[in-house]
Design a protein around this nucleic acid. Structure first.
Lengths: 187, 187, 187, 187
DNA sequence: CATGAATGAGACTTCATTCAT
DNA sequence: TATGAATGAAGTCTCATTCAT
C-alpha cells in the first residue's frame, strides 16, 4: 500500500526531472511526450499513468519550482524577517544556480505559454509578499522613490538572471557582488 | 517592373506585420500558417509565394527588428558617436515602445527557439559593437569595474524591458528616469 | 469561387455516404477515421478539411437523414394534410428502404450514443408534430384510447422497422400490408 | 473447495452486475475495464482473474440474460405448455422490467456488436422454439396469415420494449394491456 | 487471491507544405 | 498572381491486456 505510493512518488519525480531538462533544453513545444518517456526509460503509456498530459506536467514543474523559491525567501513563518536586500539577492541566485534548468524553462516560456501565464497570476500574491518586504526595507532606508526603486531592483535581478541563464560563462557572481556593493553603499 | 517589385515588397511587409502580431500574441509554435494567411486576407498558397516557410518568416522578422535597433544605435556611419549612456538607454526604450510586438516576440522565444539562437550568434558582432562603445564610455568615466558595470547595465536594461513587455501599465518611463539619474549622478 | 464550393459540397456528400455505410456496417465506434478516408479514397488530413471530427460527421449524417424523413412526412407546408395512417405507414417504410444504411445506423446507436441522444431530444418537436397528427386522426376515428393507440402504433412500426433492418429477407411488405389491414378494418 | 468455488462465483456475479450496469449506461465501447474494476472495488489484475477479457464479460452477460428469458418462457421441460399469447406477453415484460439494464444493453448493441450478433445466431434455435409455439397457437386460432401475424406480434412486442427502454415514464403497462385486449378480442 | 505498474498498438487530430487549376 | 484542395508525418492520448511482486 504505502509501498506503491512511495514508488509512485519516486517515479513521478524522476519523470518530472527528465521533463524539466528536456523542456529547458529543447523547448517546451518541441519536446514530445515520446522524448520524455524515452529519456525516462519508461513506456509512453506509463507516463500517462503518472501525469494526465503535457500541460499538467508543466504545471507541476512550475509549482514545485516556485514553492522552492518561496520556501527559501519566506522562511520560518515570517517571524523575525531579517531578510534585507542582501539576503534576498544572494538567496535568489543561490536557488537559481541550484535549479538552473527550471529557471531557464521559466524565463524561456513565461511570455509565450498561456499555461504559465495563468499560473503566474495565480501565484501573484506570493511574489507580492516578497516585493512588499523589500519595499518596506527601502522605505526605511529613506530612499526618495521606494516604489520605483523596488521595481528597478527586481528588474535588475531579473535581467542578471536572464543573462546568466542565456550565456554560458556569465560572471554572475561578480555581477551580483557589484550589485550588492551599490546597495550597501546606499544604506 | 519596379512597380511590381514595390507592390510585392508591400505585400511582404503586410504579411510580416500580421505574422509578427500573431507570433507575439499567440506564441510562435501555436500560431499556424493558416492563421497568418487568414488574418492577412490572402490564401494559403499565396503566402508561400512570398515566404518559403514559417521559419523564414521568423528570420525576416528578426532581422528587420534587429536592423531597426542597430540603425538607431549606430547612426550615420559611426562617425561622431555622441552616444553616451543616456542616449543609449533612451533610444533603446523609444524603439521598444515603437515596436512592442517585435520585442515581446523576441524576449519570448530567444531562449526556446534554435532558429533565433542561431541568428543571435550571427548578429553577435553588431551587439558587441554597441556594448564596446558603452564600455569605453564607462572606462573613461573612471569606474572601477567597467566590464562588470557594462554587463550590469545591460542586464538592468534587459530586465526593465522584460518587465515592461510582461506587465501592462508598467511605469517604464519613471523607472528609466530613475536609472538615468543613477548614471548621471555617477559621472 | 462557386466552383470551389460546388466541389466542396460534392466531396462532403461523398465522404458522408462512405461514413454512413461504414458506421452502419462496422459500427460507429469500430469504424476508424482512417477507414473512412481510405474508403473515400482521400487522405486522412483532407477528411478533416471537410469535417472537424468523427462526432460532427455523425451529427451531419443524423440531421440529413432526419430531415429527409421530416420532409416526406410533413409535406407542402402542413396545409391539407391528407396524411391518414395508411399514408404515414407507407411513407415511413418507403424511406426506410430508400436509405437503409442510415436507419440501420440510427437504430443501432440511439441507445448507446450520447451524441445521438442529444440530437434526438433536440429534434423532439418535429417528431412530436407527426405523432400529434396521427393521434388526431385516431381521435376522429373514435377509438377508445387514442393516446395509447398512437403509442402502440408507433411502437409497432418501430418494431417492424427494427426487424426489417436486423434480418435479411424479412417480409416487410407483407407485414406492413397486414398492419394496414388492421387499421383499415377498424375505421 | 466448494466454499472457494461459491465465493468465486459470487465475485464473478458481482463483477458481472457492475459491468452490465456500466455497459447499459455508458455504452459498451465507452466503458473501460478500468471503470468496471473501480466500480467493483477490485483491482485491474483481479478482474482478469475472473474474466479473460472484455468480450468474454459481454458474452457471459448476454448468455445469462438470455437463459433467464428462456427459463421463464419455456418452463418445466416443455410439458403442458399452457403458454398462450397472453402468458407470453406478460412474461416478456415482467422479465424486461426485472432486468432493465440487461435489455437496454442488448437492444443497444445488437446491431453494432459482432460479438452479440454471433451469439444471437447461436441462440437462434431457442428463440425459434418460442416463436413456433406462438405460431401454433395462432394457427389454431384460425387467423388467415399465421406466419405474418406471428412476425407482426413479435415486432410489436419488440417495439414496445424498445420504447419502454428508451423513454422514462413510458406507460408500458397500459400499452401492454391494450395489446392484450386486441389479441383477446380476436380469439 | 490480490495489486497496480508497465506495455504498446492504435485511435484521433493538427499542420507545414505542395500542387493542380 | 492567386486559390484552396490535398498530403502525410508526427503529435497527443487511450486502453485492453500482461506481469512482477
Amino acid at each position: 500500500m504505502n509501498k506503491f505510493e512511495a514508488k509512485r512518488e519516486q517515479s513521478r519525480e524522476h519523470i518530472m526531472g527528465v521533463a524539466l531538462t528536456l523542456f529547458a533544453e529543447t523547448g517546451y513545444e518541441k519536446t514530445t511526450i515520446r522524448m520524455i518517456a524515452q529519456q525516462a526509460q519508461i513506456s509512453l503509456g506509463l507516463l500517462y499513468n503518472y501525469y494526465p498530459g503535457k500541460d499538467e506536467l508543466l504545471k507541476e514543474i512550475y509549482l514545485k519550482g516556485r514553492q522552492e523559491m518561496n520556501a527559501a525567501l519566506l522562511p520560518d513563518g515570517d517571524t523575525n524577517p531579517k531578510n534585507d536586500i542582501q539576503h534576498y539577492i544572494l538567496t535568489t541566485f543561490r536557488i537559481l544556480k541550484r535549479n538552473r534548468p527550471f529557471w531557464k524553462l521559466l524565463y524561456g516560456i513565461r511570455m509565450q505559454s498561456p499555461v504559465i501565464q495563468q499560473l503566474e497570476t495565480e501565484m501573484h500574491t506570493d511574489t507580492k509578499r516578497v516585493q512588499d518586504r523589500i519595499q518596506d526595507y527601502l522605505v526605511n532606508a529613506g530612499l526618495p522613490f521606494p516604489g520605483l526603486e523596488t521595481k528597478l531592483l527586481f528588474a535588475t535581478i531579473d535581467g542578471i538572471a536572464n543573462h546568466f541563464l542565456l550565456h554560458e560563462n556569465y560572471p554572475v557572481d561578480d555581477i551580483v557582488n557589484l550589485l550588492l556593493l551599490k546597495y550597501q553603499a546606499r544604506t
